[in-house]
Amino acid sequence: MTPMDLDTLTAVTTGVALLTCVLAVAGLHVYGRGRAQRAELVERLSATGQVSGAGRRRRFRGLDRRLRRTKAGRKLELRLAATGLDVTPGEFTACMLATVAGLWLIGQATLAPFFGPLAGLLGVWAAWQFLSWQRQKRIEKFINQLPELARILANATHAGLALRTAVGMAAEELEAPAGEELAKVADQLAVGHSMDDALGELADRLPSRELVVLVTTLVLSNRAGGQVVGALRNLTETLEERKETRREVRTQLSQVNTTAYAVPVLGVGSLFLMNGVKDGALERMTGSPVGQGAVIIAFALYAVGFVLIRRMSRIDV
């Protein structure tokens, strides 16, 4: 290699190195500016109440992104939104898998290896039951706020305010979950959604007969331009009566609901009792196909009994 070629190679290498440094500095500048803009946006949205838990660090972001791309992940996200929990699909899935693994190991260690998978399935069922319980609890709390919501809307429309304005005012005055849900409706109306679509999505998130009646009343009154005040005041009285009726029915059925959960618990407790009386009895029993089939049939019968008791105690008011 001649000295001229060596000088040319040195110059090209130096130029490439300088260009790389310039691009790295520019990239770091753009990255820092993007982070600052994102932090400013998150702070502004958090101050206006449009982002929940904006200051909390999210975990399992990679798993969360993968889940949101799937149909099951999007359904899980909607289900979590209906519960009001500040949990992402990735966080819920990771916690559920950890619970399943823990129950699997506990069932395998304390009872017999055969009960490990059954305990894992029990963990999955318990996780979905927890979501259903949280969702139902939120719906019940929202239903209890419906009479007050109808009263606020009636007073606001009687004072001459538009229904859109009345919804925003009710969102500010009511506590969660009604306040949070109405704030979502007000945000949708602010960005151009129709009243029918915004209220329809509210009824889909928190399905109940009382909310469907309220939404139908508001939608029909908004379409026809009729008198909303009289309809809302009559609806307020009806909702108050239904609220008291639901409370009485729930009180009467509390013992039946407790029985539905007590029956499976007694069955699982009998397994621990059997294994405690004679150590290794469950392992010997599940060591044969006949014993495994008997255990599966027993668990299936407990599940059928639980479902039947729950259905018999379900009274639609």
Rank of each mutant, 00 (worst) to 15 (best):
M1N: 09
T2L: 08
P3E: 12
D7Y: 00
D7L: 10
A11I: 07
V30W: 12
A36T: 15
Q37V: 14
A39W: 09
V51F: 02
R69D: 06
E77H: 06
E77Y: 02
T83A: 06
G84R: 04
L85C: 05
D86I: 06
P89W: 03
M96L: 14
T99Q: 10
T99G: 14
W104T: 12
L111E: 00
P117K: 02
P117L: 10
L121M: 15
F130M: 03
W133P: 00
K137Y: 01
K137Q: 10
I152Q: 05
L153T: 09
L153I: 07
L153W: 06
A154M: 04
T157W: 06
H158M: 07
A159M: 07
A162S: 14
E175Y: 07
L182K: 01
A183M: 10
A186D: 15
V191H: 11
G192I: 08
G192E: 08
A198T: 04
G200E: 03
A203V: 07
D204S: 07
P207Q: 05
V219I: 15
S221W: 00
G225Y: 09
L232H: 06
R247S: 12
E248P: 08
E248T: 13
Q252V: 15
S254R: 15
N257K: 15
N275W: 00
G276R: 08
V277N: 02
D279Y: 00
R284S: 10
T286Y: 02
Y302D: 04
L308D: 03
R310A: 02
R311T: 10
